[in-house]
Design a protein around this nucleic acid. Structure first.
Length: 462
RNA sequence: GUGGUUGUAGCUCAGUUGGUUAGAGCACCAGAUUGUGGAUCUGGGGGUCGGGGGUUCAAGUCCCCUCAUCCACCCCA
């Protein structure tokens, strides 16, 4: 490490990750705090898990695409030692080799899988149904673009250990509360994977279920004709596509559409899916009508293939970002892969970074001052600094954020600093003030200043 | 992973058919103001024009490679 550096390192960041300055942090906290408050109101308990997990925990849970997007961590020490031993030095760089030989850890891809891992490891000390929320960054080795980052925060709420559709309805209420409190207008789309499965069964294309969901998910982008075209490419004939058209052409309120769809999909999993949607909507009504738009949408599919029941997606109704601000659903057997089968869970996720982006675009953040500091002591000389220091400490002891400019610089410089920091008051201290035992307190917003005795200072600026 | 876009000062950008010493606004620093911020004026610091190679008497400008960026696809929050 004792390298001689003649060239300064160019400061830069890997793509897709970001620094957050003071103002951004304040605004992000506002989003996180709002979500936290709502989660806790619904009885969810906080959980934090490590950024890194064993690759065996992560791999194979997110589909082929997900595996490709996992950040893998090179083993420490000589990561290639095992590999060299197996294949010999000379082959390095010439052939592919099993990744597990050099990397056994990875950065988490979402919060749901680590949660499932946690539940299985701690099953004996948890009271089921277990509700937890988790607000932490996740990592994806994706190509960054608008609204897409390599490190971003997910804010998840999941319940594990109950099949009740009351939970489904509560999660919609959580979305409703949270987005309403943030001042965003959104549409909460819901569907059931069982309806989609029923559709596939109805068309005799059950083995193409996953491929079908991927195509359906594009409906709002490529339209019904586009979807039919792509399904045609998958080998769907006119009759099958007619079935699909029928499902998407049902009209009426959410309840009516679910009822009609159920009739279309008799003898399939779709019937049960529609019953569950009906029941969820009923619970939602009983809990109280939501403020945000809730829309049953049979084209909603969700990419992650562990969902098995009701699924959710939230999209903004304002602003230019069209991708989803959150999503979730029920998964019947997420803990099964960790050796605890038959436990059902349901959960939702908020994409905090996208929520931030939309709110920033729409100017929805309440005005926050740059700093919390209320008062800056501006001292003309060293003696004044000594004189004012006990007053500074006194303010802080009483809980009032205050600072002293650390050098006796010229006033102009000190006041300019206070101004650029957004500090509302400056206490000027020089020979005069020391001599009369009073401070000159300046209100930076009005420009007015007055002479204040030391013991009045706290009251004047609070 | 696929296709395209753009790389010039800390930031946003200009820079003609290749032609002297590469510019502007904002930001920053200093002064006008030896004890008063925001506004104004004056001055100043700052750039291997993303990197490498090539064409040319001459390249920020043209060609090739490479890296980065943003956008779209794929997929997702």
């Amino acid at each position: 490490m004792a390298e001689v550096r003649n060239q300064p390192v160019k400061p830069a960041l890997p793509s897709g990750v970001r620094d957050f300055g003071p103002q951004e942090v304040a605004r992000r906290r506002y989003v996180f705090d709002t979500l936290r408050r709502v989660f806790e109101r619904y009885g969810y308990q906080p959980l934090e898990t490590p950024v890194m997990e064993l690759l065996s925990t992560l791999e194979g849970k997110y589909g082929e695409e997900g595996d490709r997007l996992l950040f893998r961590i090179l083993n420490s020490g000589d990561a290639f030692a095992v590999w060299k031993e197996k294949y010999g030095d000379h082959l390095i760089g010439q052939f592919g080799f099993p990744l597990r030989d050099i990397a056994e850890k990875g950065l988490r891809y979402d919060l749901t899988v680590p949660f499932a891992r946690y539940v299985v490891m701690n099953r004996h000390r948890l009271a089921f149904p277990f509700r937890r929320y988790q607000i932490q960054p996740v990592f994806r080795a994706d190509r960054p673009q608008k609204g897409r980052y390599r490190e971003f925060y997910q804010c998840d709420a999941d319940v594990i250990g109950s099949n009740s559709l009351l939970l489904e309805a509560e999660l919609i209420k959580i979305y409703d509360d949270a987005f309403s409190e943030l001042g965003l207008n959104v549409t909460i789309r819901i569907n059931s994977r069982k309806v989609l499965l029923g559709l596939a069964q109805c068309c005799g294309a059950e083995q193409q279920f996953y491929a079908m969901t991927v195509v359906l998910d594009k409906l709002d982008r490529i339209g019904l004709d586009g979807v039919e075209q792509e399904l045609g490419r998958l080998g769907w004939n006119a009759e099958q596509r007619q079935m699909l058209r029928a499902l998407f052409h049902v009209e009426g309120s959410n309840e009516e559409r679910v009822q009609k769809a159920g009739a279309l999909l008799t003898q399939t999993a779709g019937e049960e899916g529609c019953r569950e949607l009906q029941q969820t909507l009923h619970w939602l009504n009983v809990l109280g009508a939501p403020h945000q738009a809730v829309e049953v949408d049979f084209s909603l599919a969700r990419g992650l293939n562990y969902y098995t029941g009701i699924i959710y997606e939230v999209v903004s109704r304002d602003g230019t970002l069209k991708s989803s601000l959150g999503g979730g659903g029920r998964y019947d057997d997420l803990t099964g892969v960790f050796g605890l089968p038959g436990i059902s869970g349901v959960g939702i996720s908020f994409g905090a970074d996208r929520i931030y982006d939309v709110m920033a675009e729409l100017n929805l953040f309440p005005a926050t001052s740059e700093s919390h500091t209320r008062l800056l002591f501006c001292c003309m000389d060293q003696a004044s600094m000594y004189w004012a220091a006990p007053l500074l400490s006194d303010l802080r002891r009483r809980g009032l954020p205050a600072e002293m400019y650390p050098e006796p610089e010229k006033l102009q410089k000190q006041l300019r600093y206070a101004h650029s920091r957004g500090i509302p008051y400056a206490a000027l201290v020089g020979e005069q003030e020391r001599y009369t035992n009073r401070l000159t307190v300046k209100d930076l917003r009005s420009g007015q200043q007055q002479s204040v005795a030391p013991h009045e200072l706290y009251e004047k600026i609070i």
